[in-house]
């Protein structure tokens, strides 16, 4: 198995009397793509929020790169190298690709004591990053509002790859995309993983999960109902795990139930 990037151990989350997560344990390796599956209300989003710092776990522990990890805010998780791509993309469509790429981290140069945006250096770096990732965008000076959903997704993915993200959480990233764009997005995810970055993708669409993931983690009623390598399972078995009809195909003991 690859190096462990993030390990969750019996993570629980209570909202008052309601137990959203009842002890979730699984792990993510470097360069591994995990599909996080589950029915509505299974606790997927809660889990993602706990990893990305939006919520704090009630009990249980997380280890990131071997160290204890308990982020209190999204910025803390970000500083550790965990990036989250939300359903609604985090881009400013009113500015160009370069500006989005460097959002909040703009490069400047000094001109008569005034810090001026260094547009040329930024454009060069974006061009290099895009080329590395094999993404083609006609002009980096195009406003993002004129780009396709897939291109936007590519910008966002390239952005955190460039900024040294170590783990990516994608919350239904293709909900609004077409077939061709989704295919490109999935290719993009494989490229990201090939660079040693861990990827967790939440999706409702079984086909996507099977196309891109190394491993399926199924959450049902706040626990891991299944944790299996993609190659050792099939769609029917996974659907069974999601709905709770069956536990066949469930992973090798690890993290099943409480």
């Amino acid at each position: 198995m690859t190096d462990q990037l993030l390990v969750l151990d019996k993570v629980t989350k209570n909202y008052g009397a309601v137990q959203a997560l009842r002890g979730v344990s699984f792990s993510i390796g470097k360069g591994e793509v995990i599909a996080l599956l589950g029915d509505n209300g299974a606790g997927k989003s809660t889990l993602v929020k706990i990893i990305s710092g939006g919520l704090e776990a009630t009990s249980g522990s997380m280890h990131f790169e071997g160290g204890e990890f308990r982020p209190k805010s999204p910025s803390e998780a970000k500083a550790a190298g965990i990036e989250t791509v939300y359903q609604d993309l985090s881009l400013c469509t009113n500015v160009d690709v370069v500006a989005n790429f460097f959002m909040g981290r703009e490069l400047t140069r000094s001109m008569m004591g005034i810090k001026v945006l260094d547009e040329r250096r930024m454009e060069e770096q974006v061009a290099a990053a895009m080329e590395n990732a094999g993404t083609r965008i006609p002009s980096l000076r195009t406003k993002v509002e004129h780009l396709s959903g897939g291109q936007r997704q590519a910008i966002e993915l390239n952005r955190f790859v460039h900024w040294g993200g170590k783990l990516v959480l994608l919350d239904e990233p293709f909900a609004a995309l077409g077939v061709e764009q989704t295919k490109r997005g999935l290719q993009m995810i494989r490229k990201v993983a090939a660079q040693g970055i861990g990827v967790v993708i939440i999706t409702h669409i079984m086909q996507q999960a099977f196309q891109v993931a190394d491993r399926m983690v199924v959450i049902r009623q706040g626990v891991v109902a299944g944790d299996v390598p993609t190659k050792q399972t099939n769609a029917d078995a996974v659907i069974g795990m999601i709905t709770g009809e069956t536990l066949t195909g469930a992973g090798p003991g690890e993290g099943v139930g409480e």
């Binding site: 985090s90 881009l91 400013c92 500006a99 959002m103 909040g104 981290r105 703009e106």
Partner: peptide
């Protein structure tokens, strides 16, 4: 030409995205 101006423009475009970007 400055970061402040760029940030004003981006906040006007998508405040949530600007916040998430730090």
């Amino acid at each position: 030409k400055t970061r402040l101006g760029r940030h004003l423009l981006m906040i006007g475009g998508n405040e949530a995205a600007a916040f998430r970007a730090g």
